[in-house]
């Protein structure tokens, strides 16, 4: 299969990656090759009845008691922040939309 320029740009946008013109070119080529190769899993034929594996561990109900643990002091929480204002993490305005 091959990935079109538009597909590459769409995926880059979903992933919040800004690609240079060069990278768009390179990625559509490289990703096409990678997906050609990963599609070799289709040689395995029908896997309809196979359960997908999300976890190899047979753990269930790993639950935590509802007991408070200490939080970080504000200055520690903010210590690595690139930009701080009013006790919070300052970000450029999201503008309209964009949320979930």
């Amino acid at each position: 299969m091959s990935l079109s320029r538009d597909q590459v740009l769409h995926v880059a946008r979903l992933a919040r990656l800004e690609l240079s013109e060069d990278e768009v070119e390179r990625f559509s080529d490289e990703l096409s090759k990678v997906f050609d190769w990963v599609e070799t899993i289709n040689e395995l034929g029908d896997l309809e009845d196979v359960e997908p594996t999300s976890h190899v561990v047979a753990v269930e109900n790993a639950l935590r008691a509802d007991e408070p643990a200490p939080s970080l002091p504000q200055e520690v929480a903010l210590a690595a922040a690139p930009d701080v204002a009013q006790g919070g993490f300052r970000v450029p305005s999201p503008g309209a939309g964009g949320g979930g």
Partner: peptide
């Protein structure tokens, strides 16, 4: 670029900062 680590593009809007 919000909570820790590198930030670039802070002169633009949020989307620009992310990318």
């Amino acid at each position: 670029g919000v909570r820790y680590g590198l930030r670039a593009g802070a002169d633009g809007d949020l989307l620009h900062m992310y990318t």
